[in-house]
Amino acid sequence: MLFGFLLLKLGWIKKIHINGLSGLLTKLSLPCAILMSCQMPFSWQTAQVIGESAVISLLFMIVTLLLALLMPKIFRIKADLKNIWVGCCTFSNILFIGIPIIGSLYGHVGLIVLVTYNAFSNLFLFSFGIKLYSSVSKFEWRSFLLTPAIAASILGFLLFFARIRIVSPISETLSDLGNMTAPLSMLITGALFAQTDFQHLFKRLDLYEFCLTRLVILPLVLVPLLKFGIQNQIILGVMVIAAAMPAGAINTALAELYSGQGRRASEYVVSSTLLSMLTIPLVAWVSLFA
């Protein structure tokens, strides 16, 4: 992140390059990482982990959404910001920031739990999320299935359950491309920070209220429920980290596309991402290791 920040400030990365780098990340590197995370020897134990993760992910998203709908009423958020609040609370940055953290802590099994969670998150995103940011109420199955991350997830699960391994050198190429995900996502995040007017950003009370909700209140509510209901320590760890994640950048794209409020959404994304560098380690330590 620091290098991304410095590269943009020095002019070696231009603002116009960030969209191209983001496309490279979401359309190539990330799908390769998802696909290769499913390339492990089949076992019924791993299949059981996927099944448990699916059930827990569905419940996790429902509880998160209910909390996200409640908090703007408590803080009396203005009507024009309410939908952005709900979206940014519900749809977190679990993949771009989660992959380097979860991959380091829990390896391939943790990543396959993450991929399962992401599939359900995207299911909510392309149904409730689209309806939230626009007047469209119809679920677009085609858009959902053709999203590169979802298509890679489906293909990865199919290959896993069919016990099909991708042959070398194709697998090595896909792994190398997937390994770009963590550093590339951090470089992009750092470059986005370099464009932010932090003096203006942290003068607004609603940003502090949002960060308190997304980074503190949601984990405080979700983590005890997770620890009570989950026995598998890897699934628990992934879900705890998911609960602590900042708002996802996808909210900025959807808010801009459907309501022209991308700048407002980006302020929630940037502020929560910045503060999450402090809160993610704290939540993880208190929840998993203390």
Rank of each mutant, 00 (worst) to 15 (best):
residue 10 L to Y: 13
residue 66 L to I: 12
residue 43 S to L: 13
residue 8 L to H: 01
residue 66 L to G: 09
residue 63 V to K: 01
residue 12 W to N: 08
residue 31 P to A: 10
residue 42 F to V: 05
residue 75 F to R: 08
residue 11 G to D: 08
residue 44 W to Q: 14
residue 40 M to F: 14
residue 71 M to I: 11
residue 24 L to T: 06
residue 46 T to G: 01
residue 41 P to Y: 12
residue 30 L to N: 04
residue 31 P to W: 12
residue 23 G to F: 15
residue 76 R to M: 13
residue 41 P to D: 15
residue 8 L to M: 07
residue 50 I to H: 06
residue 26 T to V: 05
residue 76 R to I: 13
residue 59 L to Y: 14
residue 65 L to H: 13
residue 9 K to W: 09
residue 37 S to I: 07
residue 21 L to N: 02
residue 28 L to S: 04
residue 28 L to H: 02
residue 10 L to W: 15
residue 70 L to P: 07
residue 50 I to F: 10
residue 63 V to H: 03
residue 67 L to I: 14
residue 43 S to K: 09
residue 16 I to M: 13
residue 33 A to L: 06
residue 69 L to A: 10
residue 33 A to D: 05
residue 34 I to D: 00
residue 69 L to M: 10
residue 62 I to P: 07
residue 25 L to E: 01
residue 56 I to K: 00
residue 23 G to V: 05
residue 59 L to P: 00
residue 72 P to Q: 09
residue 50 I to R: 00
residue 21 L to Y: 10
residue 61 M to T: 05
residue 18 I to G: 01
residue 13 I to L: 06
residue 12 W to F: 15
residue 74 I to D: 11
residue 73 K to L: 15
residue 61 M to I: 07
residue 59 L to W: 14
residue 63 V to N: 01
residue 36 M to A: 04
residue 51 G to P: 05
residue 28 L to K: 00
residue 71 M to A: 03
residue 40 M to I: 15
residue 71 M to S: 14
residue 33 A to F: 14
residue 56 I to V: 14
residue 16 I to G: 07
residue 59 L to E: 12
residue 52 E to C: 00
residue 42 F to N: 06
residue 23 G to M: 12
residue 48 Q to K: 05
residue 23 G to P: 07
residue 15 K to V: 11
residue 55 V to N: 04
residue 74 I to C: 08
residue 55 V to E: 06
residue 75 F to V: 09
residue 42 F to I: 06
residue 17 H to Y: 13
residue 70 L to K: 05
residue 10 L to D: 12
residue 22 S to P: 03
residue 69 L to Y: 14
residue 9 K to T: 08
residue 68 A to K: 02
residue 71 M to T: 13
residue 72 P to M: 06
residue 47 A to E: 11
residue 18 I to V: 12
residue 17 H to G: 08
residue 23 G to C: 10
residue 26 T to D: 02
residue 22 S to C: 06
residue 11 G to W: 04
residue 61 M to P: 00
residue 45 Q to N: 14
residue 46 T to R: 05
residue 10 L to S: 13
residue 59 L to M: 15
residue 24 L to R: 07
residue 36 M to Q: 04
residue 47 A to Q: 06
residue 51 G to L: 08
residue 26 T to K: 01
residue 72 P to I: 03
residue 36 M to S: 02
residue 18 I to W: 05
residue 71 M to G: 04
residue 46 T to A: 09
residue 11 G to F: 13
residue 40 M to G: 03
residue 9 K to N: 07
residue 41 P to V: 11
residue 70 L to F: 14
residue 25 L to M: 08
residue 12 W to Y: 12
residue 14 K to I: 09
residue 57 S to V: 05
residue 30 L to T: 09
residue 65 L to P: 00
residue 55 V to D: 08
residue 72 P to L: 04
residue 12 W to E: 13
residue 41 P to W: 15
residue 49 V to W: 00
residue 36 M to I: 10
residue 22 S to M: 09
residue 75 F to M: 07
residue 69 L to P: 03
residue 60 F to T: 02
residue 46 T to K: 01
residue 48 Q to M: 11
residue 76 R to W: 15
residue 13 I to V: 10
residue 15 K to P: 07
residue 61 M to H: 01
residue 48 Q to Y: 15
residue 42 F to Q: 01
residue 55 V to S: 09
residue 75 F to I: 08
residue 25 L to Q: 01
residue 47 A to K: 06
residue 32 C to V: 03
residue 36 M to H: 02
residue 64 T to F: 07
residue 8 L to R: 02
